[in-house]
Design a protein around this nucleic acid. Structure first.
Lengths: 338, 338
DNA sequence: TGCTGGCACTCACCCGCGCAGAGTGCCAGG
DNA sequence: CCTGGCACTCTGCGCGGGTGAGTGCCAGCA
């Protein structure tokens, strides 16, 4: 077990390293923080911290830098989320309130997060399965061609073209539309599959095939589009990383273009808690020297999607976490209002 | 006027520099290209080309590199667009044909362009004004709330929520929907404003206010969303730029995050011709060391939007232009089929 | 007039050197 | 268990010379 002071030393190392981006030595530490002990003592503590794997030296006779394990301890035990100041809160609120529709909300959110944290921001669109159905619409585009439009309580709209096996009478279509809406409006998307299960049976035999086609497309849409859409911003902030970054920045940019990777990065949408993944804790190896701070947000009490930032492991965790949490909270409010 | 051989020398310089990324000298030039003259002669030609501003030396006693003006001459007079090979064509076609909807087409296009050119790709969504109306739908979401859905012949869908001044009867709504569709279906979006101009007069006085509101939102949607949406990809390719790129890459990434800048970059949507903007020809100063190759694409004969790539001025122009042109052509085909 | 070979000159780049400074580990003493 | 002191280890930096690619100019030749 590490003594109180050694934890204090670790905290000081993390703080200084994050600030200066340079390995920090024992002397500099005692000068900047009132640890109440001499450099020699700090050196002993550092040696112990290094044995435990919390810090490392890039080269012999250089200062120490925190390891992923060190950052992990710092985040878990040593750091408190830094709340936003009142002016910052107001700025966030003002900025988000100007949005005209869901696309705009998401676009503004990603800009805001990128600016506040000076890192790369990622925002997932409210997912379908966690939202509720506001309206289902079926539009006859041609005799055997129907467009399905889904509208969620968060304002998201999905559409899909359906080629039917047989032409659809206008009355059957209206009938299906009415039944569909009465069955699913106000319900959660996740519950839709069982709600529509028995629907074909209510129709004339000759229409059942067509009805099934429409329903199966509806279900497909729910599955495929479920978690898919997200946007990123602030990639220019990657250039602040280090001076070495041809090698650093490239895999990160590549990873950020893979939606699948990003979605995994944000983590399970169900989980509304704030999560921090540090360095190698990220499965994707291009992101081994980055950390991800993510949190769920939602219009009501529960999360409908996630948002977060991607930055160097050497980041200001308390500040970043504070910004992420605050933005998620205000986005939730905005969504609930609209 | 420059002699034939001097143009040949310029062409050789551009080709070598693009290949090696290093200033090219007179001796290396004569070795790699059969110019039929000695290095000394080439040196004289180079001096002349430098006087004219087509090439420059980074330092005294180094080789020459092309200037923006040099690239311009190269592109205009010395280079032929390099057509794709048959296997490449097939690959493009196969890749694009797998797309399931418009979003997917656009997403695949941007990936494809980025991979083919190994540069940053930008694809604009088919613009509304240049498309035709396939269907207009009005959905009553609440007594005084209507959702407007616009569907284009390219498969693009726009939706907009409208708060009406007064509740809308279901029959008036159906009436308006029918009239709207009969007026505008199959017409170009650009023509919609005058087509719907007299529409309110056909309604009962008590409905006219509401009808006007709906129509004005429709027109607004046309204007605001007109050219807006586009996506980019392949930003990881920026890291291939140079070795100096903290300073190079940053402003480019910043510029690429500004939709407005990007739209200007692609150029006027009306213009279907392939355009190349080299270095300082780009108004935005963050892009002073990049070139943009853009071209219009469309489902029929005319352009509905643009796509292109952004890369270093030192790029393979013939190859890039060939790839851009080919992709635009195939995207047009895919859109026309769907 | 235009091309060629020759020649002197100029830098950017590379390599090795030595020095300074920050940081460490260890040890003996309080 | 903390502290001051001491010897040691490296990285980083600035300096200087050598190398080589490339240039401009000039006189000679078709």
């Amino acid at each position: 077990m590490l003594s109180e002071r050694r934890l204090e030393v670790l905290r000081a190392i993390v703080q200084d390293y994050v600030g200066t981006e340079e390995p920090v030595g024992s002397k500099a530490l005692t000068e900047r923080h009132n640890l109440g002990v001499s450099p020699a003592t700090v050196r002993n503590d550092m040696a112990a911290l290094e044995d435990e794997g919390y810090i490392a030296q890039p080269h012999t006779s250089a200062g120490r830098i925190p390891t992923d394990k060190g950052y992990r301890l710092f985040v878990d035990k040593l750091a408190a989320v830094k709340p936003m100041t009142p002016p910052e809160r107001r700025a966030i609120q003002n900025f988000l309130e100007g949005a005209v529709d869901l696309d705009d909300v998401v676009a503004r959110t990603v800009r805001l997060l990128a600016q506040l944290t000076r890192q790369v921001a990622v925002v997932q669109y409210p997912s379908l399965t966690r939202s509720t159905v506001r309206h289902v619409e079926l539009l006859a585009m041609a005799p055997a061609r129907v467009m399905l439009v889904l509208i969620t309580d968060t304002g998201r709209v999905e559409q899909r073209m359906i080629d039917c096996p047989a032409p659809f009478g206008e009355t059957s279509l209206a009938d299906l539309r009415a039944r569909l809406n009465s069955h699913v409006t106000g319900r959660r998307f996740a519950d839709v599959p069982q709600l529509v299960q028995d629907l074909p049976e209510a129709f004339e035999p000759e229409d059942r095939g067509t009805v099934s086609t429409v329903l199966s497309t509806l279900l497909e849409t729910l599955v495929e589009e479920t978690e898919e859409r997200l946007i990123i911003g602030g990639t220019a902030n990657l250039t602040r990383f280090g001076h070495d970054f041809p090698l650093t920045i490239r895999p990160v940019l590549e990873a950020l273009e893979e939606q699948v990777v990003l979605l995994k990065l944000l983590g399970e949408a169900k989980d509304p808690a704030m999560r921090v993944r540090i360095g190698h804790e990220n499965a994707h190896e291009g992101l081994n020297s980055t950390s991800v701070v993510s949190v769920g947000y939602g219009s009501g009490g529960e999360a409908v999607a996630k948002l977060g930032v991607v930055g160097p492991t050497r980041m200001d965790y308390p500040g970043t976490m504070g910004a992420v949490r605050a933005v998620a909270r205000y986005v939730g409010q905005i969504l609930a209002e609209s």
